[in-house]
């Protein structure tokens, strides 16, 4: 008989809900970043602006 992990259901669900919220925020930030990339005229232009854009989107908590 396989031994199942001894999980605390309440803790597990709390972790899962927190992760869901983090994932939601991350997906929204990714969409912002993707749109910024799409707006660049070229990859060279994107490379020049990349650090600034990442800082703006990922360091400014939404």
């Amino acid at each position: 008989m396989k031994e199942f992990p001894n999980w605390d259901s309440k803790k597990l669900i709390k972790e899962l809900e927190e992760e869901k919220e983090r994932n939601r925020q991350e997906r929204l930030r990714f969409i912002d970043l993707y749109v910024e990339w799409l707006k660049r005229k070229s990859n060279a232009d994107w490379e020049r602006r990349r650090k600034t854009v990442i800082n703006e989107i990922y360091r400014k908590k939404s």
Partner: peptide
Amino acid sequence: INAFDVEDAYSLLYEDVS
């Protein structure tokens, strides 16, 4: 895509838990 160097990547993974 969303980090520009190792320090930034490390901070994203461990400090922002992203």
